[in-house]
């Protein structure tokens, strides 16, 4: 892991976040956060509920617009205009192009209920990326096979188990050939026995060298899959480092407390 991190230091930052602030009303959720995720790197965001980790992830593709600070993807800064609390996306074309390269996986799957699994996976490549249908279909089927639900291609989301739905959602994210995969607590809505099948898929993707930013509650998983772990506490980065540093040589008292509590879950 340490070598991997060292190798990553020379690589380009795919996601670069600088001094992000975000408030919901009087509640300050992010208090100036900066980090980068380099090519091929898996960065996990951990922390207790309300620490701002999901909001931070949602700022990467501007589902939440930060009050100040900047987000760059592949060195291109996402253009924002205005001042908080009315700060907004300045360039619709730019954000749509950037979003079409960010594969987001949601806690509650958010598959489109009126489309079959195959149609779900093909939707964005066809409609947003405007790629050729036969090529997209072949790729979509390959992705569904990869996540192990190839035989469910013509089923509707509601006919699948939670684990299968989340794997379909991962296939949907893969099919846009994303620069970065963004996972927002992908297993939190799943029963433990269904969690395993989703984690296995994410692990495969991490081992393939995909760039990923992962919000998770699962410390074991964060440890096994990450190149770097960031611990957020009340909207600020409290500690970050390789999994070995963060989990075995913990510095912060708050992180120690958090990890202890997590063990007893």
């Amino acid at each position: 892991m340490a070598q991997a991190a060292a190798a990553n230091a020379e690589k380009l930052p795919v996601v670069a976040i600088r001094d992000l602030h975000k408030s919901f009303g009087a509640l300050e959720v992010l208090k100036g956060i900066s980090f980068v995720a380099c090519e091929g790197e898996v960065v996990s965001l951990i922390g207790s509920s309300g620490s701002g980790k999901s909001t931070l992830l949602r700022c990467i593709n501007m589902l939440e617009v930060p009050d100040s600070g900047s987000v760059s993807i592949d060195g291109e800064e996402i253009k924002l205009s205005g001042d908080a609390p009315h700060r907004q996306i300045a360039d619709e074309r730019q954000i749509r192009r950037i979003r079409s390269e960010l594969g987001m996986v949601f806690q509650s799957f958010n598959l489109w209920a009126h489309l079959t699994i195959l149609q779900n996976v093909m939707e964005a490549p066809l409609i947003v990326q405007k790629r050729d249908r036969s090529e997209v279909e072949a790729e979509a089927r390959a992705m569904l096979d990869k996540v192990g639900i190839g035989e469910k291609a013509d089923a509707y989301p509601a006919q699948l188990s939670g684990g299968q739905q989340q794997r379909a959602a991962i296939a949907r994210a893969l099919c846009i050939n994303p620069r970065v995969m963004l996972f927002d607590e992908p297993t939190s809505a799943l029963d433990p026995e269904l969690e395993v099948e989703v984690l296995r898929v994410i692990k495969v993707l991490a081992d393939e060298g995909r760039t990923m930013v992962l919000v998770t509650h699962d410390m074991e998983f964060a440890r096994s899959v990450s190149d770097r772990v960031i611990f957020l506490h009340q909207g600020a980065i409290e500690e970050e480092g390789t999994p070995d540093q963060v989990f075995d040589a913990t510095q912060s008292a708050r992180l120690k407390q958090f990890l202890n509590a997590a063990k007893h879950d």
């Binding site: 589902l63 619709e92 979003r99 987001m104 949601f106 509650s108 598959l111 939707e123 947003v128």
Partner: peptide, 15 residues
């Protein structure tokens, strides 16, 4: 209509 599905559509770059 579930908001999450609209959000997913936006997250994938739909106008």
């Amino acid at each position: 209509v579930p908001q999450g599905q609209l959000e997913a559509a936006r997250a994938y770059g739909m106008s």
